[in-house]
């Protein structure tokens, strides 16, 4: 077996509010192997960013409740901020959702980069920028972008720059949160391939690639983890998730992907009826049960446990045998 870079066990991360806890990550188990790209998909609000951000920095009101997130065998949930700071960028780095919009409009790119790395005690000297230039070459950006203002660059160029900056210290694990969502399809394809390229060239060790867009995940992720309302529904290799999903939510999600040949005026596609539950003070039970046509009594009483049904294929559903064999989703 390949070694695990990250091993998450029964992790719970809750937002503390005046009314109680928003249980955004509620007892999840998964791991990432060295050299692997793990895709995370799921409905908006299901906890994808909470998980990504929580692994980098626990910022109020987000609270660590219990469980483990072992990075190279060490539980980073227990680290003091100071210790964690030594890991950031080198061991674990993140490209946050909407990072592309964070470039300062009044600073040249070079100044912007200098300012960021100085904050992390790196000296932005010429030697440093030689490395930056080397990386710019790899992503097909002209060195002259360093003298541009961000508004002179297209979204695709900015996202490539963000990639370069977040990976300068060759992180072992890179978390990418919706990095392709705001890009046109060709830039999407370029940026997605870049992540794979960086992995192959060992610039990054492994990656977590968060997006709601399953068709992109299918292209670049080795395995896909589908989340629903703070829980994990299913984890499997990308072919299984797309072609042979077993969890009722994954099945419904896959079947609502747009077909390329349907127009609204001729035929109306449909989504999944209902809405995700409110995570505030939410209790036991399967969180998908209000929308699930396979739901039975037990689904309301007990939270389904994550179970490995075959090698590398994990599910959390009481009735997966019935649901999984049902072709008509």
């Amino acid at each position: 077996m390949t070694e695990k870079i990250l091993d998450v066990k029964d992790l719970k991360l809750y937002y503390k509010t005046l009314k109680g806890y928003v249980k955004a990550i509620d007892g999840i188990n998964f791991d990432i192997k060295r050299g692997e790209i793990l895709g995370i998909a799921g409905e908006s609000g299901c906890g994808k960013s909470t998980l990504g951000n929580g692994l980098i920095l626990l910022k109020k009101p987000l609270n660590y409740i219990s469980g483990q997130a072992n990075l190279n065998g060490k539980n980073i949930m227990n680290l003091k901020n100071k210790e964690m700071n030594t890991l950031r960028f080198k061991d674990i780095s993140i490209i946050p959702q909407f990072a592309m919009d964070a470039f300062s409009p009044t600073k040249k790119i070079k100044t912007f980069i200098s300012d960021i790395v100085s904050q992390h005690n790196i000296n932005p000297d010429e030697k440093f920028f030689d490395k930056v230039r080397e990386r710019l070459d790899m992503v097909n950006l002209n060195h002259s972008v360093l003298n541009n203002y961000s508004i002179e660059l297209s979204g695709g160029m900015k996202q490539r720059l963000v990639m370069v900056i977040s990976t300068l210290l060759d992180p072992e694990l890179l978390i990418c949160d919706e990095v392709t969502s705001a890009l046109d399809v060709s830039s999407q394809r370029f940026v997605a391939n870049m992540i794979g390229d960086f992995r192959d060239k060992k610039i990054i060790g492994s990656a977590i690639f968060i997006t709601h867009d399953l068709s992109i995940l299918y292209q670049i992720a080795d395995r896909i983890m589908v989340m629903y309302a703070g829980h994990i529904a299913e984890i499997a290799d990308s072919d299984t998730i797309v072609k042979n999903p077993k969890h009722p939510y994954t099945k419904a999600l896959i079947s609502s992907l747009p077909k390329n040949d349907v127009q609204y005026k001729d035929e109306q596609l449909s989504g999944i009826d209902g809405t995700p539950p409110n995570l505030l003070n939410i209790g036991e039970g399967c969180r998908f049960r209000f929308r699930c046509k396979y739901a039975t009594d037990i689904c309301a009483k007990q939270t389904p446990v994550q179970e490995e049904i075959s090698s590398g294929h994990t599910l959390a559903c009481w009735n997966y045998k019935k649901a999984g064999s049902d072709k008509n989703v």
């Binding site: 799921g42 908006s44 705001a182 709601h212 399953l214 609502s256 747009p258 609204y264 109306q268 989504g271």
Partner: peptide, 30 residues
């Protein structure tokens, strides 16, 4: 930022409003 199933719902909704109320939409998308 929406997943596949929610996207379809939102679009169906927009399209039905356009039909019923005559609203026009300039839909910027990738």
């Amino acid at each position: 930022m929406l997943d596949a199933s929610t996207r379809i719902d939102v679009l169906n909704l927009l399209a039905s409003i356009c039909k019923e109320k005559g609203m026009a939409v300039l839909f910027v998308t990738h």
